[in-house]
């Protein structure tokens, strides 16, 4: 227990996430191979690649929804390992938005947003509710606060999910294909919220196939295939001048 207090002093404050030589297996299947990735504060990163390439698994490793077996992950300088205190601290600092929204259907929109601030951050209910309303206004659905998630459209649900994450005041946001389960008409309303967030300087990691979004907000695009990072570059070079054949093939299929 002695080494469980994270050492902030020796940490480079500019680095949000650092992944070194990380491997992961599902049973015998080698999903992630030697992942090395450094994400600076305020950086906006898009991860793309064909389905099954491990991109979701990669970001799910960053908040321990999946456990990596080898290598190093540091978030805010805290090492991600079996130590529950570390996991707890890291999860407080990372917000996550899922493809299937994963709102809590038995709670109202407002309760969804207040739950973690009240129980994890021990905020008084009144403060948590006031903050939640502010974030709901930011995602432009304050009038739905008393409804249940089941009464909202997919796009509205995903915006609530973003507000719910923001209520925890995270420094880093992970997006796991946030628009893949949405009807085309609703994709824009969610992307607009994400663009706003990016413009405010949030550190973002986003798995997505929305290449238009990637072009507008990303500082860096990462392309993955069969568990490896094949290529990473700034969006302009990535789209106009892809280096590997695999990337070229992928881009020719989706653009």
């Amino acid at each position: 227990m002695t080494e469980s207090t994270p050492q902030h002093s020796q940490v480079n404050e500019d680095i949000a996430i650092e992944v070194k030589g990380m491997h992961k297996w599902y049973g015998d299947f080698h999903v992630l191979k030697d992942i090395n990735l450094t994400i600076k504060r305020g950086e906006r990163i898009i991860i793309c690649g064909p389905s099954g390439c491990g991109k979701s698994t990669l970001i799910r490793c960053l908040n321990r929804l999946e456990v990596h077996q080898q290598g190093d992950i540091r978030v805010d300088g805290i090492e991600l390992n079996d130590d529950l205190k570390h996991i707890e601290k890291i999860r407080r600092d990372i917000g996550m938005v899922f493809q299937q929204f994963n709102l809590f259907p038995h709670l109202t929109v407002l309760e969804n947003c207040c739950l973690a601030p009240i129980w994890v951050l021990k905020q008084p209910r009144k403060d948590a509710e006031a903050a939640a309303m502010r974030y709901l206004e930011r995602v432009k659905i304050p009038d739905q606060a008393e409804k249940y998630p089941g009464q909202l459209s997919g796009g509205q649900q995903q915006r609530v999910a973003i507000a719910r994450s923001l209520c925890m005041n995270p420094n880093i946001m992970l997006f796991d294909e946030p628009t893949s389960a949405l009807d085309p008409e609703m994709i824009k309303e969610v992307l607009d919220v994400m663009v706003d967030l990016a413009n405010e300087g949030m550190t973002m990691l986003c798995v997505t196939h929305e290449m238009g979004f990637a072009k507008t907000v990303a500082d860096r695009v990462i392309f993955m295939d069969s568990g490896e990072i094949i290529e990473e570059n700034d969006p302009e070079s990535f789209f106009s001048n892809p280096q590997s054949d695999r990337t070229k093939l992928f881009l020719s299929q989706i653009l």
Binding site: R91, F98, A116, V120
Partner: peptide, 18 residues
């Protein structure tokens, strides 16, 4: 219950019993 429910709870930092 879909697995996403407990994952969302984990991601928000809720403890096991919470």
């Amino acid at each position: 219950l879909p697995k996403g429910q407990s994952e969302a709870a984990d991601a928000l930092g809720l403890g096991y019993w919470q």
